[in-house]
């Protein structure tokens, strides 16, 4: 697939103003090829214009536009990132109790030569894939598998890296019967006590308890156009505003973008996305993530078990805003 073709397929509503420019660029290129005209300068100019326009479009996104990007069907998934960032990945399956949850992947891998454990929710890139992956909504067995591999990391003193990209933990009859709430709650308690460095990255949708259920890293990072919220903007709108169409208002009110969450002290850093967001250049997005991972892991590697636990505990202990007295 040529790069141009890919770009066209990936256009979001907010990217529509670019459509014209892409067309012009393509025409220029065709013209240059057919007539053997010297248009290199024109092509370069047009590419520059596209770049500028794209930058402009992505600088002042509304929260709900960010939501669209975060949920983009072509947004790189956890397995994409694992492929780009790590070496020698061996996927580990199953919670050893009930089944294997395809909505949450995990495994052994090397990060710049260092043994680590990686895990994260896995969305699909087509309807068929999404059905197989349950749209990245994990069942209790997914959370229990996550905890199982975290324990392996802990046993051998290896860092843990979690990728968060989920609309939320699955809500279905089976999920309830097998203890979705208990699975998440237990993960929260156990993650707080892990004796190894742990970094979580919100790469797409950080959907509520389903996201937090693998998200208690010593460092919590977020891609520039990812979102993280207690409930989906649509859910919040239909419950509090009594109108699902007011999702935009809900998205604004809840403060769900990386910038907002950095200000609130929920995340530690924002990872820049390439021009036109991660789906336009997954390789570059992966490079940015890899650099962020290495930089953030470095200082954690010098901490003792007790310091790592204290670091994590204090991080979450501080969260909450209230009045006293």
């Amino acid at each position: 697939m040529s790069k141009d073709k890919k770009e066209k397929r990936n256009l979001l509503a907010i990217e529509k103003p670019l459509e014209d420019l892409y067309q012009k660029l393509e025409d220029l290129k065709k013209l240059a090829e057919a007539g053997k005209m010297e248009l290199t300068e024109e092509v370069r100019q047009m590419e520059k214009r596209i770049e500028a326009k794209r930058k402009d479009l992505f600088t002042n996104l509304t929260p709900i536009q960010t939501v669209q990007i975060a949920r983009h069907l072509y947004r790189p998934t956890t397995l994409d990132y694992i492929g780009y960032i790590f070496e020698d990945f061996v996927e580990l399956h199953g919670d050893r109790n009930f089944s294997d949850d395809p909505a949450l992947v995990s495994g052994l891998a090397k990060l710049a030569g260092r043994s680590v454990v990686v895990l994260g929710q896995q969305k699909g890139k087509s309807t068929k894939e999404n059905i197989a992956r349950n749209f990245g909504m994990a069942n209790p067995e997914g959370y229990r598998k996550a905890l199982r591999v975290m324990r392996i990391a802990e046993r051998y003193g290896r860092p843990i890296i979690s990728f968060i990209d989920t609309p939320g933990a699955y809500c279905g009859i089976g999920a309830e019967e097998r203890g979705q709430a208990e699975a998440i709650a237990k993960n929260l308690r156990e993650m707080a006590e892990l004796t190894v460095p742990f970094i979580s990255i919100v790469t797409g949708e950080g959907g509520s308890g389903g996201a937090l259920g693998i998200g208690m890293g010593n460092r919590v990072l977020m891609l520039e156009f990812a979102i993280y919220s207690v409930i989906s903007p649509e859910g919040c709108a239909s419950i509090l505003f009594r109108d699902a169409k007011r999702a935009n208002d809900a998205a604004v009110a809840m403060k769900i973008t990386a910038k907002d969450l950095l200000e609130l002290g929920i995340i530690d850093d924002i990872i820049k996305e390439p021009a036109g967001a991660a789906h336009n250049n997954p390789e570059q997005a992966a490079v940015n993530i890899k650099n962020a991972l290495i930089n953030n892991l470095e200082p954690l590697l010098t901490l003792s078990h007790r310091e790592l636990i204290a670091d994590r505990y204090n991080k979450f202990r501080k969260m909450g805003i209230f009045e006293e007295g």
Binding site: I184, L212, V230, I256, L264, I266, I321
Partner: peptide, 8 residues
């Protein structure tokens, strides 16, 4: 918002 999630 997210602050309520973090209480978990």
């Amino acid at each position: 918002g997210i602050m309520s999630l973090m209480q978990m």
